[in-house]
Computed example of a mutant assay.
Amino acid sequence: MTDPTLERWRLVLGAPASAVGPLGADAAGRDAALDWLYGRDGDLDKRDVRRIGGDGTSVLTTVDWLTDISRLFPHETVERLQRDAVERYDITDVVTDPTVLETITPNPALLRAVLQTKHLMNPDVLRLARRLVEAVIRDLMTKLATEVRAAFTGTRARKPSRWKQARDFDMTRTIRANLGHYRPDERRLFIETPHFFSRSRKHVEQWQVILLVDQSGSMVDSVIHSAVTAACLWGLPGVRTHLIAFDTDVVDLTSDVADPVELLMKVQLGGGTDIARAVRYAADLIEQPRRTIVVLITDFYEGGSPVPLIAGVRALVDGGTKVLGLAALDTDANPAYDRDTAQHLANVGAHIGAMTPGQLAAFVAEQVAG
């Protein structure tokens, strides 16, 4: 039997390392699956590397490959392989072939791929792809909704409450008040009277939160998280949410905020960028500037002169509106952006940075709470 460490090196190096000995059945399958994907890397020739599996004679189809990697690799590796297939090697049939879509496991990388290729899909394929979008968004909503809503929940006060809710259970006071009911022989404390904290409610006035989302191709992660964040903010007390997508045109998607799947299926990624136009559109929506937050989510690469953009942001800030410029809104908050334009906007009073959706929710909640 081949040593597991040597076998892993054999999988990394391919046929040139065949001297370590033959591969087992599963390892041979992994080797063929890796070669199907990474064997097409043009950089291998430049480095004089020949990664040829050579352990099987069959030619894998995309469906076969997806089936094999799901069987042979752990879940995290499968997601990485699928992401590389779509993003690194442009294997679009991973999300445009109906046979593939019926078998594939939804994950965020495939959601990004669907949004970038949905214009290539016929209606039947699009319906299958939509199911993938729904599955990923449902998972994101489950994770994010609690985080967003927690930012708007009142803090606990150190005084008793008549309302009995598990989240407000006062363990220390309850134990102290019921020590007389402790039974040493059973080593149990019997609770006769439970005690609870009160929860102070934040005084909330109506605020407008206007999300302006750059739908250029490089912002796909931020578009996804903007849609989910807007859906989580929708209906919260004291917050009226708008979601605007823009490239060189401006599209108001507020009517679809409650349905992030429908919203994302309407987004058209790519095209030029006119950030100033989006800022002007936001200015027309504002009813009470001092109770408005404009969140500009973009890489700040303006298609034309940045002067109108800077003037527009200055006008919003001077009128009392809080302007938050985010170079990224996703789970990693890793920004790539035009630092010069971002600095100009910071100089006229905008807050510039990158945030996770939870951090954005906390920022909005802080402003709303006053």
Rank of each mutant, 00 (worst) to 15 (best):
P4D: 11
E7Y: 00
R8L: 15
R8G: 07
V12Q: 05
A17K: 03
L23H: 10
L23I: 06
G39L: 13
D41L: 04
L44T: 02
V49P: 03
V49N: 07
R51K: 14
I52L: 15
I52M: 12
G54H: 04
G54N: 04
G54M: 02
T62Q: 06
V63G: 10
L66R: 12
T67C: 05
T67Q: 12
E76T: 13
E76N: 08
E76D: 14
T77M: 14
R80T: 14
D84K: 02
E87W: 03
D90Q: 09
V94H: 04
V94R: 02
D97I: 09
V100C: 15
V100D: 13
T103V: 15
I104W: 10
I104E: 03
N107L: 06
M121G: 00
V125Y: 09
L128M: 08
A129P: 05
A129M: 04
V136H: 07
V136A: 11
V148D: 11
R149C: 08
R149I: 03
F152N: 13
F152Y: 14
T155H: 06
R156Y: 08
A157T: 13
P160H: 11
Q165N: 07
Q165D: 10
D170I: 02
T172S: 13
T174A: 01
D185K: 07
R188T: 08
R188F: 00
F190C: 01
H195Y: 15
F197N: 01
R199S: 01
W207E: 10
V209Q: 06
Q215A: 12
Q215P: 06
S216M: 02
S218Q: 12
M219H: 06
V223S: 02
I224V: 15
C232T: 10
V239D: 11
R240M: 05
V251P: 04
S255G: 12
P260T: 03
T273W: 01
A282P: 13
A283T: 07
L285I: 06
R290A: 09
I293Q: 06
I297H: 08
E302A: 00
G303P: 10
S305A: 12
P306S: 01
I310A: 09
G312N: 00
D318T: 03
L324G: 06
N334Y: 09
P335G: 12
Y337R: 07
D338A: 11
D340C: 04
T341L: 04
A342Q: 09
Q343P: 04
L345C: 04
A346N: 11
G349I: 03
A350H: 08
T356E: 12
V364T: 08
Q367P: 02
